[in-house]
């Protein structure tokens, strides 16, 4: 489903990263970085909750608004029952829509917010997304200290939280359109090869977006997928070409950008909900503000992984959502 917007803008963003991300190439662009993984809390879950709250606080300072001025908070994370979001929201106190769409949550949140702003149901909203490396390891894999050997195709969950402020008040970046993707399952059962799981859904959403907007891929200065990793990225390129005859040129994947892949022990790259927004908000959006690039398609990719279903020998479905950001020429 593709929707075009007339009156939705991205006003500002905030990013908080963990220690591994701070060792990566975008260290200087994050609003705040921590050098441990507890952030002064007792557990991983509470730590993740804390950085959601902090990212909202930083954002509110940047846009000079108070909590009561914000109509809605849309947020999601990877933990069961999205507890990081729910506990964070208890202290934030803005009406909440908690969402789960695996690692495509960040863009799904932006889409829901944009739709409601465009329909004039709300004037503004904050969209947050977070993930925590150890919290995810504990929930989806093994105890953190166990550290069993990993495969080359495995990815490293990003620790961080990112928020953005969307509203109908014009700013330099316009949310132009969005596409909600279908759940795709091409029979991959390997939970340590998420790039292979998610590539077909990214392809399906990109194709759907281009078809429904009548555009060629060259319309975009940059197409950015979420967390396919170095192998998933190659799979997507070839799959898109074979299946839909789309050749990706100005394309990158945030999983391959957020870490220094050759130096940090992150296997095939980053993953997790925070991966895409950390890169997009801290690095891509400033580039748009400088007008180095004008049209960007963010395609967040989510592997809908459940350990229970994998243990039942079922294949892993995936979903991707896309949102198109454009530099607002009227304001610049």
């Amino acid at each position: 489903m593709t929707v075009k917007y007339n009156n939705v803008y991205l006003n500002n963003t905030s990013t908080i990263s963990g220690p591994y991300e701070a060792q990566g190439p975008f260290n200087k662009y994050y609003d705040k970085s921590y050098d441990d993984l507890y952030f002064g809390n007792a557990t991983w879950e509470q730590a993740e909750s804390k950085i959601i709250v902090e990212s909202v606080d930083i954002l509110l300072n940047k846009v000079m608004k108070e909590k009561k001025d914000v109509n809605l908070h849309i947020s999601g994370d990877l933990l069961n029952q999205i507890v990081a979001t729910n506990y964070a929201s208890a202290s934030i106190g803005i009406p909440l829509i908690g969402i789960y769409s695996a690692c495509s949550t960040s863009v799904l949140g932006m889409i829901i917010g944009s739709n409601m702003i465009d329909a004039k149901q709300i004037n503004n909203c904050i969209v947050s997304a977070s993930s925590h490396n150890n919290g995810s390891e504990k929930q989806f894999r093994q105890p953190v200290e166990y550290g069993g050997p990993k495969r080359k195709t495995a990815t490293f969950t990003v620790t961080g939280a990112a928020s953005c402020f969307l509203s109908s008040t014009p700013s330099k970046i316009r949310i132009e359109s969005s596409t909600i993707g279908k759940v795709v399952d091409l029979g991959v059962t390997d939970s340590s090869h998420m790039g292979a799981v998610m590539a077909p859904s990214a392809a399906s959403t990109i194709y759907q977006h281009l078809r429904e907007t009548n555009r060629d891929i060259s319309y975009y200065d940059l197409v950015l997928t979420g967390d396919l990793g170095i192998y998933g990225k190659q799979i997507l390129k070839e799959y898109l070409d074979i299946e839909y005859h789309i050749k990706l040129k100005n394309y990158n994947d945030t999983a391959c950008m957020i870490y220094d892949i050759n130096k940090q022990p992150v296997y095939a790259g980053g993953s997790g909900i925070a991966c895409m927004p950390l890169v997009a908000y801290s690095y891509i959006i400033p580039k748009m503000l400088n007008k180095e690039i004008k049209r960007v398609l963010l395609v967040a990719t989510g592997a809908l992984l459940s350990q229970t279903m994998v243990n039942q020998k079922l294949t892993i479905p995936s979903v991707s959502h896309a949102i198109s950001l454009e530099v607002n020429d009227d304001l610049s």
Partner: peptide
Amino acid sequence: MDKNKYSLLVKKYTPKED
């Protein structure tokens, strides 16, 4: 693309474990 064809494509870009 059917599942078998896709699994061949995945295999092509999956590095071998040592």
